[in-house]
Design a protein around this nucleic acid. Structure first.
Lengths: 127, 127
DNA sequence: ACAGAATATTCATTTAAAAGAATATTCAAA
DNA sequence: TTTGAATATTCTTTTAAATGAATATTCTGT
């Protein structure tokens, strides 16, 4: 994956928000959809684009597709997400997205549908 | 200048190299041209693009146009240039560009044409 | 006023990314 | 074996960026 490709990936607000969310832990498409307030098709396309670049990876779990950041995560990406926290968190809804993520996961966990196993509060949601 | 615009600017190898060079100090178009081994028109267009985004600024000095990074420089840019030094310096010719820059300025300074005043070894070239 | 150096602009073409609408695939559970 | 939930793909249109060729502008020195 080239440097240029990484930056191309970072050129889109939705993708930045997705990366920020995935940094906290894996999520499935429908959660991203809900958190970004965006249609399924568009999210799916973004994820495909990102997957082709190797910026995210996916695995199926029952009906869900679980997306996550590959480990170890590209240092250029980490740096940028960190820097964005500091210098553009508000513009990008970063902080709020994370708050909503926690809420959403907590709620989903206690609902009938439940959560995909590897999403379930995996990373610092419920304790 | 939006975050997204910054990343769009970083999506191109030539622009990255230009920014890396300007980080050391102002340069005129013909020096960039020579350092990147690229035609005048293309460099000029890149600079225009970057100027419109506010990523660089320009002033005229006699026949030369001197380009530089605006002060204070966008932290997102600084971070990225720094990170690229660490994780992609070779891919992007970063280190070599800086070496060539020093050579070029030193040579130009002692030639008949001379150097635009504000370029002249301004930043750590000759001592 | 003219010539030459340094730089910029314009216009046409190509290439790549984004957006939208419609539809298809995959799996689980009844 | 059909239904519904979750997700993906295909195709078309629109928008934006890159490339190339030609030409224009701005300033300096004569």
């Amino acid at each position: 994956m080239s440097i240029i490709q990484v930056y191309k990936c970072l050129c889109d607000e939705q993708r930045l928000r997705i990366l920020n969310l995935l940094k906290e832990g894996p999520l499935c498409v429908c959660h991203l959809q809900e958190l970004l307030g965006e249609g399924q098709v568009k999210i799916s396309k973004q994820l495909r684009y990102m997957k082709e670049l190797g910026m995210v990876e996916a695995r199926r779990e029952a009906n869900w597709m679980i997306y996550s950041l590959p480990q170890p995560t590209n240092p250029l990406l980490i740096e940028n997400l960190q820097c964005l926290q500091d210098c553009a968190a508000e513009d990008l809804h970063f902080a709020n997205d994370l708050k909503e993520r926690a809420k959403l996961l907590k709620a989903a966990q206690h609902s009938e549908g439940g959560l995909p196993e590897s999403v379930a509060c995996g990373a610092g949601c419920c304790e």
